[in-house]
Design a binder for these strands. Structure first.
Lengths: 243, 243
DNA sequence: TCCAAAAATTGGACCGTATCAATTTTAAAA
DNA sequence: TTTTAAAATTGATACGGTCCAATTTTTGGA
């Protein structure tokens, strides 16, 4: 069992205290005092607080102090924007939706030059090529083509590929897929798109492609998802001051 | 003029070097060497690199090293809605081509139910409705509609609305817009879309909408951009398991 | 040659310090 | 009382260090 990291413990506790309304003034104690009460260094305290800042729960003003975002307490559900954009999270994680999956293709091929690049492989490496059609309520929604290095998942079978590969990874390897680099765009549809996704010839198709990483940073899968444009929904928080 | 922060200088330089292809092996020197060459502490080096990790440009593997995300270098799209350039309200760049902005509409209206939700307003609140057409090389590319509460920016004028609202906020209120919730989808086009963006009736339109927040968490603006679907491109780094 | 153990490498967590900048508070002056 | 200047507060940046965990490389023995 992994011992919980200090800054996460502090972060969680502080968050809990905020939600419990322990800070009636809407102002938190200063960093130095907080780090003293938690018996951690100020750097760790800052790290914990920074996460809450990113979540929009608190904000800091140099020279003045740290304050609780009143809107957060007022209506926390409004801060959970996830409800609006089930688009992608759904296809990442198997969260209880009535989705089915049909295996269109499943084979092992040598890694192409492009795949070698993207998954950090060599010429001698092989990958699974997995093509699936995802159905929601028996309607085809996503055509997904994914490539996974054999050496990462030597025990993969078609049966597994048909259901959730990600949870399989978690079971077998104890690792989670939790980061991805995604690129989203829309392009003219192919005949196959039109056929499977019920698109008219002139209608375009939505494409989400990206690399998925394991906990430890290993590139795990390269995947392209093609979907009806009406299903292309994506929402995210963006920090604007990072350039 | 503010002297540039050390970690930002290092971050920018490293980013530049990566994009220039200086690290052919797709592997960066280790943190300790890098901090030595940049003459900064390891903590500062980590801070600089962490930003690039968040941007999806590099990723790290403990014990192994730091690597360049191969997808990042490839597929650089026409528009990059990243960082500051995420300019729904403000500056967005298009490969150095000259962009113009035409004010289509500017009025004050009562906040609709939806706006009340998104901007935390009440029935008695009013908002500016600002509609602009953005042109790249004299061709209309984006139809943008934004809503800003009067009580946040009582002094806004059409002249300002045509140029940069964000920097205006900074000047007048000393606040920055530094976070946004951005959502992307595609929907059937309206007659106006078809007209302005040269879409055929059956072709859909790309929509990017965002809620922008000030430092203190106040929602500052709701904005919607409608654009030709071929221009709808977005790259992002996703973290799935956050508390 | 091959394999397992040991060593070196590399990123992660945490600590503590010094200095600075923005803001608020206090004290002094008008 | 009001205004102004100094002092204290508070978060931000930057430094450098220790220890640890994951991975890779080297080494030594079978």
């Amino acid at each position: 069992m992994m011992t919980e990291l200090v800054y996460r413990r502090v972060m969680r506790d502080l968050k809990k205290r905020i939600l419990n309304g322990e800070f009636t003034t809407k102002k938190l104690p200063d960093e130095r005092s907080l780090s003293a009460t938690y018996q951690v260094s100020r750097s760790t305290m800052k790290r914990a607080m920074e996460i809450l800042v990113d979540q929009g729960i608190i904000f800091k003003k140099r020279g003045a102090g740290t304050f609780i975002n009143p809107l957060y307490l007022k209506d926390r559900s409004a801060f959970r924007y996830e409800g609006k954009n089930l688009g992608i999270t759904d296809s990442f994680q198997a969260n209880g939706k009535p989705t089915k999956s049909r295996l269109l293709d499943y084979r092992v091929i040598p890694a192409t030059a492009e795949l070698q690049q993207e998954l950090f492989l060599t010429e001698s490496d092989f990958v699974y090529e997995i093509k699936r059609l995802r159905l929601v309520a028996d309607k085809p929604v996503i055509i997904e083509t994914g490539y996974i290095p054999i050496k990462i998942l030597p025990t993969l079978t078609p049966a597994v590929a048909q259901s959730s590969i990600f949870s399989y990874v978690q079971d077998v390897q104890g690792q989670t897929v939790n980061r991805a680099f995604l690129s989203i765009h829309v392009q003219p549809s192919t005949a196959e798109d039109q056929d499977l996704l019920h698109l008219k010839p002139i209608e375009p198709v939505g494409v989400m492609s990206g690399i998925f990483f394991l906990d430890d940073g290993t590139p795990f899968e390269v995947s392209t998802m093609r979907l009806h444009y009406r299903d292309l929904k994506y929402g995210t928080f963006v920090n604007l001051n990072e350039d």
